[in-house]
Design a protein around this nucleic acid. Structure first.
Lengths: 111, 111
DNA sequence: AATATTTGACGTACTTTTACGTCGATAATA
DNA sequence: TATTATCGACGTAAAAGTACGTCAAATATT
């Protein structure tokens, strides 16, 4: 009976995992890069850029929204999808920290 | 009938997603950080460090192995778990590239 | 007012992930 | 040789993720 045991880990670790999980699908990476190239915002149907159906892309967008990396503003009929600069900065920090922790070894002789 | 559509994306995007997905669970982040702190290798039962059962941790280890970030050498009864420096370097590059792409916007005025 | 466009929301089906227990092989120890 | 420790492999069950079609509301357009 698998229940989410994620909360047994440190908050910081959890948050990092949430961000990395959000990046764990090519469609979501593509959306993020596309938004970045569009100067962080795009109005219209993002699914037209991806090799996936609209409802599927919407689901990926939802996950990106849940992680906070993307925001959706409604303006008239169209929706503006934007990167959330604060969260993007946070993500960068997470990555930098991870790289910092992970590089501590090097020139060890154990394998 | 959802079939893996991941292959519809560019190879590089796919590979990046594989790495990020591997980092998308606190247990796996913890394992990686633990191995880094252990000078990249550890002999013994990693599950004793995590708040999860051994078989679950083994499954996470398998995923890390599949992504290539971790290697397992058998030496006698015990197994050596080691970071794979080449893949770790690759992961760092992926992160740097992602940060590079994503930061291109900034001081845009669209939201 | 009728029609068309856009987008979120919902349902569905299949796959993957997460979590655990247990078994069996292997190897060290008594 | 019998016992103990270690660890991969297997099965199982619940939860999440992936992918799509379709509907309905809201807003333009005709």
């Amino acid at each position: 009976m698998p229940s989410a045991k994620v909360e047994l880990f440190e908050t910081e670790l959890q948050q990092s995992a949430v961000y990395f999980k959000a990046l764990g699908h090519p469609a979501r990476l593509m959306i993020l890069e596309f938004l970045a190239e569009s100067d962080s915002c795009f109005t219209g149907d993002i699914s037209s850029i991806l090799p996936l159906g609209r409802s599927t892309v919407n689901q990926h967008l939802d996950e990106l929204k849940k992680s906070g990396l993307v925001q959706g503003h409604i303006s008239g009929i169209k929706t503006n999808y934007c990167l959330n600069p604060d969260k993007i900065d946070e993500l960068k920090l997470v990555m930098e920290k991870f790289v910092g922790v992970i590089k501590t070894y090097k020139d060890s002789n154990c394998c």
